[in-house]
Amino acid sequence: MEKIKTILVKEWREVFKNRLVLFTVAFLPLILTAIPLISLAATGDFGEELSNSASPSEFFGDLCVGLGEMDCTQVYTLSLFTIMFMILPVAIPVTIAAYSIVGEKTARSLEPLLATPITTTELLVGKALAAIIPAILATWISFGIYLFGARLMVNDLVFGRLLAPHWLAAVLVVAPLLTLMSVSFAMMVSSRVSDPRVAEQLSALVILPIVFLMIGQSVGFILIDQRVIWLLGGGVAVLDVILVYLAVRVFERETILTRWK
């Protein structure tokens, strides 16, 4: 446990001295928290236009049962942007995790590290936690700020919909699972490539499914409800098991040491 903590602290000390990483970790949550709140503030106008064009039930389906037009528009806006809090846990750790192994390779610091009595599991867990913890914390803090801002702008009925169990599950349970998925994938890539930029770009691909989900909801192709969230959570959990297994398998000390360029 002490060795995991040592690696974790080492990673943070190193990573947070890198301005690009700091920017990713700080800027992304800020912008993804600000956009929904600004949009929410603007839904008043959107709601009026909507009332002249279509009936709420046609446009929003089950989402607006029991709500007026204005409330319905706000609930829709909130649900659309709540998905953004599932992009954060995937996007933030990619930069940290992608750099974690390939960065050591390029700095030639991996060999002395592997010469210590640290096990592969301790090393990978330390590195993974260094990426997972800031991502989850940033997501939860951003979501907290989003909830606080939304509370000031919407009525009790609408706010109650935001606190629906499936949204809380999405942020509190599915988001950490997504972080683990993102980190495992990025570390797998990081073990295989020799250029940190390639690692980062390849690892960023893991964000795409969440972006598709968001686009799907915004164009009305999919409505994210409790069933979708649980299906997503289950799918990601299974994927996590596979990716963690692969990330450990791919980290072959000898191959990494002897084949790096």
């Binding site: 040592t6 000390r13 190193e14 590290l113």
Partner: peptide, 19 residues
């Protein structure tokens, strides 16, 4: 193979703990 962003003290302390 040192950690260039970390101080000499931090570099050694990491390894002292790992050992």
């Amino acid at each position: 193979g040192l950690y260039d962003r970390l101080s000499a003290w931090q570099n050694l302390l990491i390894f002292a703990r790992l050992y």
